[in-house]
Design a protein around this nucleic acid. Structure first.
Lengths: 329, 329
DNA sequence: CTGAAAGCGCTAACAA
DNA sequence: TTGTTAGCGCTTTCAG
């Protein structure tokens, strides 16, 4: 690996001059600039980013924390963040945390030791105390973080209301809910949205809610419980698409036809939802946009050292597919 | 951020001594060691990895190149690699390349400038020339890389033969194949395995093979073409699970029942295959093991500077599920 | 057993 | 317009 010294020697200038043409700052004579450029090309010189980072205290790296790389929602999100970071010449680091606070803390330390410039975090477990240890810009994504930390989320509660309303508009008379984990704020918001719409119905019982942990297996089991307990359920709002795949399987295993016996609507709008049979009606998040927005906000914080804590909330959108009865419209 | 100097000052020793206790090398008196340890704790000192990297020329980082983060096979693989790298105190960097040679080259440069210690690469596009630019250890995963580069793969051809044999054993009389992209070696191996088994059958035609690009949409379309062209197909070997989801959808759209009209077997063994209706019979790769093995091999190369080019080939295993007729056994 | 000092490769004052 | 130099934080000879 050629160093800046080699280039300087070959071009017969000082390393400072090479640095100047590299970074396009300071004055440098056109002619010498050419000489340096030629030397760089000739040696195929690439600046050492580590040395640069050491000096600057910054690394041009950004990390994204996700709780579960196996839930397709997060790869889609990661994709968006990665694209955006690349556009701004940052290197992207993906960290899978399993929502495990120890893994999160370990990552936070390791990354800060590497002078990573900023963090985009999807987490429900990080405590204010842990967050206090973070000395670099942070943006919360998908789930809010307690403190005054910038965040990008969607209108989970309102979106869920709309989901249930749609089920009602289809004529559903008894609507159940498979909820996400209780420690995840967006899961609670979605549950609350469901409750907003149903708690005053005379058919409503608390036993119409089961928790499915945002996992396929748990959701399948939860749905089976629900459908056995209340065989007359004709509408189901599932907390996310991944769980809905399990719910679909559950209904099938009980001989319940979706959508003719049971209309099902979910949340997220991941690609997977188009591929199931029946395909999933869902409240779609603008996944790519929220990921991109979070990256943008973070980069702005990094580059402008502008710590104003803005928060963005996007809207979800109903996508009608095959898991719900046709509406009359 | 406290530096080693701060620690040295507080402990009333030189930075060299602090470094010694940090790295547990060289002799250092028990008593001074304690003094230093106390100072470290007191200041909550964490060594700066960038400075360390600059000195050592290594960063304790490993990158994984994958072509498509949206194909669930790769997150599963990434998960394995990540776990293993973490066990060895490396930081994991995931790079999504879209099988785009320019993105790959850009990543290779960027990562080497950051003194990344090694690369695990899933790629079908990297040329020997590009590979020549890589100055650090590399392990090829899932797909071989032309040169004498270590690799971890599975027995694609033999596994595919077994898949087709299984279809035959079920009584299938006309077996088609939805193949992966032509530029991907494992897709070709799988196609070859299929051909090994069918090319001497009197019913065989080349038109029983369609390409599905390892994508849901393309595979769905390919399957529709196939089934329209040859309505008497009663067995289908699909190049991977993701495509099989599309194939399932295609069959459904034509009113063809799987498995009673058509037995379908796929390849990969991703979790998604358990969740479809019907669930997928498939030749399962030991995904976690191959990812872990690749990481292990890479780390060994890095730490022992042991460039011997070994290659590992794992075996796939038939998992019988619902997309194939019950066998008599 | 411990410290002084050089140097990893680069950038940014400060001089010239 | 260019060069000299100090220093980012750490590790490692080399002396002592």
């Amino acid at each position: 690996m050629a160093t800046i010294k080699d280039v300087a020697k070959l071009a017969e200038v000082s390393t400072a001059t090479v640095s100047r043409v590299l970074n396009e700052n300071g004055y440098v004579h056109e002619e010498t600039k050419n000489r340096v450029a030629k030397a760089i090309k000739q040696l195929n010189y690439k600046p050492n980013d580590v040395a640069r980072s050491l000096f600057k205290g910054r690394s041009k790296m950004i990390a994204l924390f996700i709780p579960d790389i196996m839930n397709p929602f997060f790869p889609e999100l990661a994709r968006a963040v990665e694209d955006m970071t690349k556009n701004h010449d940052f290197t992207f680091i993906l960290c899978n945390t399993d929502d495990d606070i120890e893994k999160e803390t370990a990552y936070i330390d390791a990354l800060q030791q590497k002078s990573v410039d900023g963090l985009i975090i999807v987490s429900s477990t990080l405590t204010p105390e842990q967050l206090h240890h973070i000395q670099i810009p942070v943006v919360a994504l998908d789930r809010k973080l307690n403190n005054g930390i910038a965040s990008v989320t969607v209108n989970n509660r309102e979106g869920s209301r709309q989901a249930v309303q749609y089920l009602k508009s289809l004529g559903c008379k008894k609507i159940a809910h498979v909820a996400g984990p209780e420690h995840v704020d967006n899961a609670n918001e979605r549950r609350r949205g469901y409750l907003d719409e149903v708690q005053n119905e005379d058919w409503f019982r608390l036993s119409l809610v089961e928790h499915g942990e945002y996992h396929y297996d748990a959701a399948k089991q939860a749905t089976i419980n629900l459908l056995k307990r209340h065989p007359d359920i004709d509408g189901l709002f599932v907390g996310n698409d991944l769980m809905a795949v399990g719910a679909l399987k559950a209904a099938e295993s009980l001989g319940i036809n979706v959508p003719s016996d049971l209309s099902m609507i979910a949340f997220d709008g991941i690609t997977l939802g188009e591929t199931t049979s029946p395909s999933l009606t869902t409240m779609a998040q603008p996944i790519y946009q929220i990921g991109a927005k979070a990256a943008e906000m973070l980069i702005k914080q990094i580059e402008e050292e502008d710590t104003l804590t803005q928060s963005e909330e996007f809207s979800v959108q109903l996508i009608k597919r095959e898991s719900t009865r046709r509406d009359e419209a």
